[in-house]
Design a protein around this nucleic acid. Sequence first.
DNA 1: GATTGTGAACGGATTCACAGCA
DNA 2: TGCTGTGAATCCGTTCACAATC
Lengths: 217, 217
Amino acid sequence: MRKAKIPDVVVRRLPLYLRAVEDFDRREHVIVSSKELGDFTGLTSAQVRKDLTLFGEFGKQGIGYDVKFLRTQLRDILRLSTDVHIGLVGFGNLGQALVHYHVDARSRPRTRFSVSPDRLRIVAAFDVDPDKIGRVYAGVPIFHIDELAEKAQEYGLKIMVNAVPAEHAQEVVDHAVRAGIRAILNFAPVTLTVPDTVKLHSADLTLELQSLAYYAE
Amino acid sequence: MRKAKIPDVVVRRLPLYLRAVEDFDRREHVIVSSKELGDFTGLTSAQVRKDLTLFGEFGKQGIGYDVKFLRTQLRDILRLSTDVHIGLVGFGNLGQALVHYHVDARSRPRTRFSVSPDRLRIVAAFDVDPDKIGRVYAGVPIFHIDELAEKAQEYGLKIMVNAVPAEHAQEVVDHAVRAGIRAILNFAPVTLTVPDTVKLHSADLTLELQSLAYYAE
DNA sequence: GATTGTGAACGGATTCACAGCA
DNA sequence: TGCTGTGAATCCGTTCACAATC
């Protein structure tokens, strides 16, 4: 009933709403309007309302949205109220930085800006370097890539972060798909192919910088 | 005459076309069709043609596109045929990994997958940690953030990569904007505000993972 | 009076389909 | 014949504007 027809663009905005609503909660607002959510996220109030009503009627006319209620709803919709285990493939510079970044965001005291502690967690990493395999880094154990399928099962990995060099990116993704991974965040600068049962997002630094170059000068 | 009316979505696809055409060049194809470019990039051939004709009539009817010519055109359009200097603010884990990644991509021998050597270069970094300031890392000198305006001028910085913690992200962006930066790639997990003369792209890992969680399970 | 929820209008991007050309 | 360039048609996401409701 749920995800069938929710447009992708909307799903990508949900975390923004969650972040906004958590900020209002932190500042002890009890009610928040679509206008306020829009201002915080840089969207229009109509957009906010349209998006939210795709999942239910969360607001009260004339009043606004109950902050705590909306927060719970958004967390549930995004599945952030149950544990979601993430695997990281490629424990080079970028991979390590990502673990750091992720751990930091989770452990930092809650300030106005901190990411709220959610149930998304990098719980296992994979590499081919024998010096790394068997070690535990910031609480994350490192396994050989060949163990991906087995460990994906064992750790219940649902999301894979792909931080291997471009030339191995597609094969890693293929492994991940066979291992039953449902969503992949890819950092390698290549166009990848996945079956359409798997969701792929790419964070391609090279592409970003090159397109920004267009606007330079 | 140029950038005035090119839609943003198109600009974001140009680096994809460039990557494709460089791959065909590497494999010594002389001519490439919109169909082939589409297959490589995951887009339709009509899309490829529509996009390219926004910048001129680069193809030959009945034949296709001349690979070397198209490559040159794309590089020129993206301004990658002249030097574009990038500054990095925030030399923590992520910042360092980004420099590494970037240097690697530039120095690696040209394989089928390597990023072609372009003129985009991180030439200066900024931080507030006295232990880092004054050092040079992978050829990139590190300055105090207070020197941003001065060094931006001196190094001709056009693009800024923002890798500082969320709570300082907006102030860094404000500095960068005052220093005449034209485009910003932001990694901090916050909604930022810039004047519309400045282009802002955000690569927000938290948002990416949270939206992927929706598809997990 | 304020703000939501939503059908209708709009606008922009994608795809279609074909005329034009090598 | 094969493939580009492009107007027309379509699709899809955003914004408008207002009736419903607290």
